[in-house]
Amino acid sequence: METRLIGKSFLDGKQLEISVSEGKIKAVSFVETSPENLWIGPGFTDIQVNGYGGLDYNAIQSDVLALGQISRKLLSYGATSHFPTIITNSPEKTSALIQQVVQLRKMDPLAASCISGIHIEGPFISPEDGPRGAHFKEFVQGPDWDLFQKWIEESEGLIRMITLSPEWKGSTAFIEKCAESGILVSIGHTNANHHQIIEAVKAGARLSTHLGNGMHGVIPRHPNYLWSQLAAENLSATIIADGFHLPAEIIQVFKKVKSEKLMLVSDSVALAGMPPGNYEAAVGGKVTLTPEGKLHLFGNPNTLAGSAMNILQGINFLLRNNLADLPEAWQMASVRPLRLFKPTFDPFQIGQNADLILAKQQPDLGLKFLKVLKNGVEIPFD
């Protein structure tokens, strides 16, 4: 059965017709006209997902298959690919969590097609309050290549990315080994000085994790690790665009500095996608999820307890606040993160898996999906 999608290209607004057959892109052609305000582009890639809809990649499950619901829920919001993100924990628990994702992929074909890598966030981060964020202090440590190599083997090659702080002795050599092994190194949760950040970039670090978050509440005006990462031309950066983690004007500045190297992540925790209310969280204890989507410590609205958004909400925040036009916002959530791992990725290449979205742009509301295809199969959503 063949599926045809007609709309404007997310890249440049040109009118396209895409034919999909047997799960692959069969043909792409330009057409004279297309329905007004309909856009076509690739599915989104979210390289930082801790959990979603009450399910947590950082908790051992009695039923591993339950975690497959994360892929299904994220698909309904356009995320056709994502990285389960495992944060700082004991070496043994980290191993178990990695093996749990590997087992899930072997048991659930749809989850396997959606989970394109694992992101290890920690434990090689700053031990300081502020930069450490909500990570367990007792498990923070300096880089250990033997330990990380063990995790790589346990992941069966699925670990594609690590967030670390280059403030530790031995960080440069560790980053070089990661780069040689094809692991993307991202700087985050850091208290590194300017020299350490520059040396990390020289060694192969290519990204900053949720830039502007995971920091001290007050930093020196200069020098500081924020300026150093902004100034590093070879560093791309991810941001959380939910309206709570970063003010709109900060995103404007980051966009001007990083330009095409800036991209979106959700950094969603397990409570993302849940109804508003008070909850007991594995990290943070008692927390409140507001109707607006802000997740904060109970009784303390000024202290965030994680991100409760999905990546579509990040795109729509950019659109509603005139922080990006539709082509740029879509690229920030799709081709930009993908090209960190596949530099020559072409979203409309003939013969590749048909992970596509047909959407309508609604003034002041953002994107409304008409179709989401995963491997050419239409995904049901509300």
Score class of each variant (00 low, 15 high):
Asp267Ile: 04
Phe341Glu: 03
Ala173Met: 11
Leu358Cys: 01
Met1Gln: 13
Thr238Leu: 06
Ala231Tyr: 12
Gln141Tyr: 07
Glu249Thr: 15
Val28Gly: 00
Val269Gln: 04
Gly117Lys: 02
Pro143Thr: 04
Lys177Ile: 10
Leu5Asn: 01
Val49Met: 01
Arg132Gly: 11
Ile311Tyr: 01
Pro301Cys: 09
Lys202Met: 08
Leu16His: 01
Leu367Ala: 09
Pro337Ser: 08
Thr288Met: 12
His194Leu: 13
Asn213Val: 10
Ile162Met: 10
Phe30Asp: 08
Pro380His: 11
Gln352Cys: 10
Gly214Val: 10
Ala179Leu: 01
Ile239Asn: 05
Arg221Trp: 11
Val377Ser: 08
Asp346Tyr: 05
Glu260Val: 05
Val287Thr: 10
Ala66Met: 15
Leu147Trp: 14
Met263Val: 08
Ala66Lys: 15
Val64Met: 09
Asp325Tyr: 09
Ile120Lys: 05
Gly7Asp: 09
Val20Gly: 00
Ala134Tyr: 07
Glu167Asp: 13
Met332Gly: 06
Gly293Ile: 05
Ser165Trp: 00
Asn321Trp: 04
Lys202Pro: 02
Val28Asp: 00
Thr3Val: 10
Ser62Tyr: 11
Phe369Ser: 01
Glu249Trp: 14
Leu319Cys: 04
Gly293Gln: 06
Phe10Ile: 05
Thr94Pro: 03
Pro301Arg: 09
Lys177Tyr: 10
Lys261Val: 09
Ser208His: 06
Ala281Leu: 13
His189Arg: 08
Gln352Thr: 12
Ile187Trp: 00
Leu326Lys: 04
Asp129His: 14
Ser155Tyr: 07
Tyr52Asn: 04
Thr33Cys: 12
Gln141His: 11
Leu230Trp: 09
Pro380Tyr: 08
Lys26Asn: 07
Asp12Val: 06
Ala27Thr: 12
Ala281Cys: 13
Arg221Phe: 14
Glu167Leu: 07
Gly142Asn: 02
Thr238Gln: 06
Lys150Cys: 11
Ala282Lys: 15
Ile98Val: 15
Glu92Gly: 12
Gln69Arg: 15
Phe298Arg: 03
Phe148Ala: 11
Leu230Gln: 11
Ile120Trp: 01
Lys137Thr: 12
Gly122Lys: 02
Lys93Trp: 13
Ile311Arg: 01
Ile87His: 05
Ala173Arg: 14
Thr80Tyr: 02
Glu378Ile: 13
Pro35Ser: 10
Phe348Cys: 02
Leu235Tyr: 05
Trp145Ile: 01
Ile87Ser: 06
Leu340Cys: 08
Ala179His: 08
